[in-house]
Write a protein that binds this DNA or RNA. Structure first.
Lengths: 331, 331
DNA sequence: CTGAAAGCGCTTACAG
DNA sequence: CTGAAAGCGCTTACAG
């Protein structure tokens, strides 16, 4: 691999001149520059980003921590992050945490030192101290989907409104026994949806039916098993709200196997509408969240924070999107 | 951020001693070591990986280039790669290329210099020269899903067999007019599937019905539109083979909207079975590929190549998995 | 307009 | 057992 030194030697100038020529950081005589460019080409030189980063204290890279990519909304947010980051000259480093605090901690420790200028995280909620430390040490940090630390920027959805609106919508369709498939109440999106669900139920005088399962919350099985449980719990059930599309798909499968008609007997609605909802055999009514755009915004916020001068860092921003109810066949 | 120097000063030793103590690279007096560890703790020191990388010429990071994550099999392979890499102490850097040669080129150029020790790629096929260069310059490179460069390791599936087997299976069910939804023939997986499809058709004396669409090949719309086209092309159509699950889902939606019964009137089968196939309302018969395991293997191969001594680099390996036909409701 | 020098934070022969 | 020094590949004041 050719280095600056090689180029300098071939072009018969000092390395500093090469550096200046390549970075356009001060005027270089056109002839000299031409010689340098020729040498660069001949040696097919490309700068060592590691050395640049070390020297400049910047890597133009942001780390992204997500619980999972496969069949989750995070694939969409991550893609938004990637696109926006690339547009602004940043690379992304994606790490799966599996929602495991230990894996998350390892990734954070790896990222914090030298790898990245900023971090976008959908956290487990159990490494808040480290994340605050990282922020304090000067890295930009943005929370996406889950807001767990007050004074750190975030991009989220109004989950409470989602839960509330879904119940109201279903009630408007005549449903009275509405089941909820949800995730850990320790995580703000699930907690928020539950709160909204409960608030609406209270207003309507309905009673709650909730299910949890042992499976990974991001799995089809989770939705399947929870739906089965809801069915067992409440024979009068006439609607199911699923926290995610994947859960909703699993639930619809469970209903089909139980010979329950959707939406005639039980309506199904997803609270994290992703593009797939519209293409299912029975297309799924859902509260669509702008996952891709959320990723774009999170990347933009992070990079702006990175690039702000140290004495002018923006104060934490909290961007809250709202979901839009899209009516389809299932509900 | 504390540095080695800070630790050394606090522990009252030379930086080299700190380095040795931390890396267990030579005996350090227990008392000295204790002092150092205490200082590390007090300053909550973590090494700067950039500097380590620059010095050691190793980053313990592998780059992963995929066409897309959202709703593709690459989310599964990538997760396999991540897991295996983490297990072996490597981080991963994931880059989406959108199957765009220009984006791919940019990412490759960014990665090649200092960022990573190795690359795992599902390529566009249009940057083979750069990839070969990268390989020659000493980075480990592994192709996954698409094999486009002969003398570089790969992990793929026997796509030809997939296409062949699917036709034979459908013929066994009595189908005679089998349509294929496929992708660019310039990419080995699609080419392979087509070849297998054609070989089987020839053996059986069937004629071909193929569809392509303007949409992104990794989209639900693609499957939807292609299915509509197949229907229009061939009124006798009694089966559809879709290259991917997502296409298959889109196709089933198209059939439903066209009031065609699956599987009674038309059977549907996916050639890239992912976990979702089994959970659909009409579960989808598919040729399941071990996507996660393929990722694991690709990571293992890459890391083994990275860690092999320079004079003992393994020769390129080509790992070919076979798909397994799983019969479900759609076909 | 360009060169010489220092330094980013580490590791690793080389001494002792 | 530990220190002093060189060096990984760059950038950037400082001179001139």
């Amino acid at each position: 691999m050719a280095t600056l030194k090689d180029v300098a030697k071939l072009a018969d100038v000092d390395v500093s001149t090469v550096s200046r020529a390549l970075n356009n950081t001060s005027y270089v005589h056109p002839e000299t520059k031409a010689r340098i460019l020729a040498a660069v080409k001949e040696l097919s030189y490309t700068p060592n980003v590691l050395a640049q980063g070390l020297r400049q204290g910047k890597r133009h890279t942001i780390g992204v921590l997500v619980p999972r990519l496969h069949m989750t909304v995070f694939a969409a947010t991550t893609q938004g992050i990637e696109e926006e980051a690339r547009k602004r000259g940043y690379a992304t480093m994606i790490c799966n945490t599996e929602d495991d605090a230990k894996i998350e901690r390892e990734s954070l420790n790896r990222l914090r030192n030298g790898f990245v200028d900023g971090i976008i995280i959908t956290g487990t909620g159990r490494n808040s101290r480290i994340i605050r430390d990282i922020r304090t040490s000067g890295l930009a940090v943005t929370q996406i989907m889950r807001k767990q630390i007050e004074n750190i920027s975030s991009v989220t959805v109004d989950y409470e409104a989602c839960g509330y609106e879904a119940v109201k919508y279903l009630a408007g369709k005549g449903c009275r026994e509405i089941g909820l498939i949800n995730g850990s109440m320790k995580l703000s999106p699930y907690k928020g949806r539950y709160d909204g669900y409960q608030r609406a139920l209270k207003e309507l005088g309905f009673s709650e039916t909730c299910a949890v399962s042992e499976s990974s919350v991001h799995s089809l099985e989770y939705g399947y098993q929870c739906a089965m449980e809801l069915l067992a719990q409440n024979p009068e059930l006439d609607a199911i709200m699923a926290a995610t599309d994947i859960q909703g798909i699993g639930a619809m499968r469970a209903l089909k196997e139980s010979a329950v008609k959707v939406p005639d007997e039980i309506r199904v609605i997803s609270l994290t509408g992703d593009i797939i909802s519209g293409m299912l055999e029975t297309s799924m009514t859902s509260l669509e969240m702008p996952a891709h755009e959320m990723g774009v915004k999170a990347a933009a916020m992070t990079i702006e924070e990175i690039e702000a001068p140290a004495d002018h860092k923006p104060t934490p921003q909290h961007l809250v999107f709202s979901s839009e109810l899209v009516e389809r066949e299932s509900g």
